[in-house]
Nucleic acid binder design. Sequence first.
DNA 1: TGCCCGATTAACT
DNA 2: GTTAATCGGGCAA
Length: 189
Amino acid sequence: MPKRLSRAFFSRSVHEVAPDLIGAIILFAGTGGRIVEVEAYHHTDPAAHSFRGPTERNAIMFGPPGYAYVYRSYGIHWCLNFVCEPKGSASAVLIRAIEPTLGLPAMRRRRGVADDRLLCAGPGRVCEALDITGAHGGMALDRPPFEVFARTGEEEIVAGPRIGITKAVDKPWRYGLKGSRFLSKPFSA
DNA sequence: TGCCCGATTAACT
DNA sequence: GTTAATCGGGCAA
């Protein structure tokens, strides 16, 4: 039985937690699968929402680790983050893509796409497939409806530049499961 | 109060 | 490859 990830797991540096999340299982109300792509955002990073200090939107990032930070992207989509590091560090990992395994009928219905590779290939798609919205921001990751389990065994992890940002574009803080068909974009060799 | 633009996606050409 | 959709956050005034 996989080990449930608790607050101690998320209390470490966001640059340790992010690659350790590749291969982990995330379930929300019983739907989800294996995490195959994430990005790390540290509060000293100009691309992070927390870079300019606490606001109403990013308040969760300044709280304790092990909680969900959900924000609205482009006025349309929801994006899910896991808050990391000791409280006040304001760092988080963006969940960018999942290999969908549990609750496939529900996820297909919510997404309305024919190809399962597009169910959870992107941060907005992940939230639509799992039915995560801003209402779930601030929820603990070790309590229902969230369930997060550690990966079992070794995984081959690749890193590269993050997607969709205009600041700190050179930092290789996007992590993925090598060769996965469920990435939002391939990693360049 | 007004303005610009974004940790995106889908539907175009 | 390009672009519209769509709206709240953050900052200037």
